[in-house]
């Protein structure tokens, strides 16, 4: 397989995640879309590492390891925020959470 196959799959995953993040009303599903976009970027890093000129430097792999660590932190804080918002509004539907101070 050439590099473009992986890049196309990654672009497709990114587009699916973006479409989900834009269209879903449930805050948790929006977070799922964001996670999918992050993973699409990770797939790009690994594909470029494998097909790049200097795979013995492991740059792409190390970048993805840090990216996974940061994505885990983001998911934990994001879900905690959703739980805090739910406790306040009793809903996670983004079209009903529309006031800043209430």
């Amino acid at each position: 397989m050439s590099l473009q196959h992986y890049l196309i799959v990654s672009a497709l995953l990114f587009a699916v995640g973006l479409g989900g993040a834009l269209t879903r009303r449930n805050a948790i599903l929006v977070l799922i879309g964001v996670e999918l976009m992050l993973n699409a970027a990770n797939l790009n890093f690994i594909a470029f590492w494998r097909y790049g000129p200097n795979p013995e430097l492991f740059t792409g792999i190390i970048f993805v390891i840090f990216s996974i660590a940061i994505a885990a932190a983001e998911a934990a804080v994001g879900l905690a925020l959703i739980i805090a918002v739910y406790r306040h509004y009793r809903t996670v539907r983004l079209d009903r959470i529309d006031s800043l101070k209430g």
Partner: peptide
């Protein structure tokens, strides 16, 4: 793609932690 460590880290972190957290 030959990135075994990242593959297993993905399983551990994403399937084992993030999906369960969600």
């Amino acid at each position: 793609l030959g990135a075994e460590f990242v593959g297993f880290a993905q399983i551990l972190v994403y399937i084992g932690a993030v999906a369960i957290l969600i």
